[in-house]
Amino acid sequence: MSEQEKKAQGGEKKEPLMDIKEIEKDTLLDEVTRISFDNWRLIQICATKVGEEKYEILYTFGKGYQWKNLRIHLSKGESVSSITSIYEVAYLYENEIHDLYGIGIDMLNYDFGGKLFRTGVQYPFA
């Protein structure tokens, strides 16, 4: 497939498959607090490396069978505030992100200090 065709295929997908709200890193806690007041539960947090030294973190929340996503973008060296003060169970996901990506998480309730996943290589996904 040629480069052009690829682009055309990507261009067709104007309508995204997932409902994702892109937000600023600084407004994360406000958004999450609002969601938690609305009785949503945390489903998962997932980090992705999207380019050289560029990362994004996807937060998924659920209510019954519904779900919605928040996404923040950050670059290497930046840290993100923990949402464990709002969702206590987030600590597993956030420690995982720290251990695999080397992204700093501030104000964790249970900080495993990089020892949740003890990998042979430090920050393998970074």
Binding site: M1, K6, Q9, G10, K13, P16, L17, M18, I43, N69
Partner: peptide, 17 residues
């Protein structure tokens, strides 16, 4: 062709979602 885009699937495994 190749996939382009993102998606998240939820299924019910024997042990849960």
């Amino acid at each position: 062709g190749n996939p382009n885009g993102e998606y998240m699937v939820r299924i019910e495994q024997p042990r849960g979602e």
